[in-house]
Design a protein around this nucleic acid. Structure first.
Length: 579
DNA sequence: GCCG
DNA sequence: CAGTACG
DNA sequence: CGGCCGCTACTG
């Protein structure tokens, strides 16, 4: 094995689609930034960059605007050997996008003025990997699938999961499938809404394609036969709740991008621009779940919730490991203060901005000079406490205290720890409870928990603050803080009182995570259903302002799994809902 | 920010 | 009502 | 362009 001269980083060997290939670029320097990036990419995917024309060269990669005669003229040659493939720069990015060597003969890779030799390639000099040139894109995609699966295997995903994923995706590939049609046909309550004929056309499918968005047929890198691949992105798969998510993995290949995009989200959040922030978080979620490293913007563009602008940023991060815009933006010190203030319980963007604008520089100063609500005062006093993480063991300790106290009042009552604890986190930001009891309505729940349990635990010194108590009507929750005896650290504690017939919907809500819940609710919407913490409803009439509106008809509330089934979302245990 |  | 909070 | 979760719930 020869040592590589260049120290540029490379992707894992099984992803090096250009391994064994020798590229000559035209122009053959890295003075142009775009070309520099292309060369870097090529090398990272295993290619050798030849500085001079020589007989090892397998490919001449020509800039888009250059014509073949120019190349020959520069090289002072009449023609290139038949064994050398002359391709447009588009070839590289497309190969990288598909994780495979594509057929060099495809028209979109052609260099102006170049006529490819008619299959007179000398097999002896052609790179061995070129046998793949003859396969159709569908098979290429399957090869790609294997790469992904190998990767999954390395990441120690259970074999069951692999075969599942493999089976599904292959099945989806092979059938000229009709997931969208299924989507409408199988929807239990959609009969009243005629299926949109457009939704079943290929146009609809193709809207997810990075290529079609770009317009012109001549310069776009459309591979006409790859449509079935793109179809794979049916509508429902775009919902995050449709996929297993176990959070950021240690070896996440897109760690750099997710970290940076998350910071961008934080930045927008601090600016008060919630929608861009949400968009960034969605994209971050997509990336953190993607099994392979995303290098190019085309590749990124194909992923859900990643558009042109984010794709560009992702490419920049992939090749430079940082984002210039972030550094530019994060350097502003005003944001640091705003961020500090916004982490006060009871203060949001508006209040935090107000404090900043009043010229307060520290939390102490805010306490002294600003007018505060009771909650905000406690929020500042226990700022450090409430922003600290809670070890899983401590969550369990708090659980015991509440459970014991509750059972003294009524042994039939049940306590379920929700939130990140139920999702299996080793530490939590707060402690979330569901209190329920068989055959018990909201009134009795409230009587027991709010009128008896909370006062008792407050008296015993376990509950130390109350931020929000359910007041009227059916809904019931209590937000406050607790503190273990012997400790001085206050913990945020939420109680959620749930009638037993709403337990399923409540479990979904209180287990989260946030992104998962919103995704699930959004999916429900597309099926004409509505999901909230109390149940799944159909025939909900969206009220126009103050006009009467129907709450809808309850479809399911009691059974968590049933709600998944009705929405046709594969069952996700809590630990797979970390989006 | 993305998506329809 | 706006603001803030919950997952 | 407008929607982006909840006819969420609670506070002041």
């Amino acid at each position: 094995k020869r040592k590589r001269r260049n120290m540029a980083k490379q992707v894992p060997e099984d992803q090096q689609i250009f391994k064994g290939l020798h590229f000559y670029f035209f122009p053959n320097d890295d003075k142009n930034p775009a070309r520099k990036m292309r060369i870097a990419k090529a090398i990272e995917f295993g290619a050798q960059w030849e500085r001079e024309m020589n007989k090892n060269i397998t490919h001449v990669v020509v800039d888009k605007l250059m014509q073949y005669p120019t190349v020959l003229k520069y090289l002072k040659m009449n023609s290139l050997p038949n064994s050398v493939h002359v391709v447009s720069e588009i070839y590289l990015s497309e190969c990288i996008s598909y994780h495979a060597l594509l057929n060099v003969g495809q028209p979109q890779f052609r260099v102006k003025g170049y006529v490819a030799p008619e299959h007179s390639d000398d097999p002896a000099t052609a790179a061995p990997t070129f046998s793949i040139n003859s396969v159709k894109p569908l098979e290429l995609k399957l090869a790609d699938e294997k790469i992904i699966l190998r990767q999954l295997a390395r990441q120690e995903i259970s074999e069951e999961e692999i075969s599942l994923e493999s089976a599904t995706s292959v099945a989806l590939l092979l059938q000229d499938s009709d997931p969208v049609e299924d989507f409408y046909r199988q929807s239990p309550v959609n009969a009243n809404r005629p299926a949109d004929p457009q939704a079943t056309t290929t146009e609809e499918f193709d809207s997810g394609s990075p290529i079609m968005d770009e317009g012109s047929e001549t310069d776009s890198a459309v591979i006409p036969t790859n449509q079935p691949i793109i179809k794979r992105q049916d509508i429902q798969t775009k919902f995050r709740c449709m996929h297993k998510h176990i959070g950021d993995q240690p070896g996440n290949p897109n760690a750099a991008a997710t970290t940076i995009l998350q910071q961008m989200a934080d930045y927008y959040s601090q600016t008060g621009d919630e929608w861009p922030a949400k968009a960034y978080r969605k994209a971050t979620g997509t990336l953190s779940n993607h099994p392979t490293k995303v290098w190019t913007k085309d590749e990124a563009l194909a992923l859900p919730h990643i558009g042109k602008r984010l794709a560009q940023k992702i490419e920049e991060i992939a090749f430079t490991n940082h984002l210039r815009r972030l550094h530019k933006v994060i350097a502003e010190p005003a944001d640091a203060l705003l961020r500090t203030f916004m982490k006060v319980y009871g203060a949001g963007f508006a209040k935090a901005s107000e404090w900043v604008n009043q010229g307060h520089k520290t939390l102490d100063e805010v306490v002294e000079k600003a007018k505060l609500s009771d909650n905000q005062r406690v929020g500042i006093k226990h700022y450090a406490d409430f922003n600290a993480r809670i070890p899983r063991e401590e969550v369990a300790q708090h659980a015991d205290i509440i459970r014991k106290s509750l059972h003294k009042i009524d042994p039939a009552f049940e306590v379920i720890v929700g939130g990140s604890y139920r999702r299996g986190s080793t530490q939590s930001g707060d402690i979330d409870w569901i209190v329920t009891c068989p055959n018990t309505g909201p009134a009795h729940l409230r009587a027991v928990v709010i009128d008896k349990l909370v006062p008792r635990l407050t008296e015993s010194g376990f509950l130390v603050a109350s931020f929000a108590t359910t007041s009227r009507g059916s809904e019931s929750k209590w937000h406050g803080a607790s503190c273990l005896t012997g400790s001085t650290i206050w913990r945020r504690l939420d109680l959620f009182l749930v009638p037993s017939n709403e337990l399923g919907a409540a479990l979904i809500y209180f287990t989260g995570d946030t992104v998962f819940n919103r995704s699930l609710r959004l999916l429900a919407n597309t099926k004409g259903l509505r999901l909230n913490q109390r149940g799944l409803y159909k025939d909900v009439i969206r009220g126009r302002r103050h006009i009467k509106s129907s709450k809808g008809i309850l479809v399911e509330a009691k059974d968590e799994r049933r709600i998944f089934e009705i929405l046709r979302v594969p069952w996700r245990p809590p630990e797979h809902r970390i989006c």
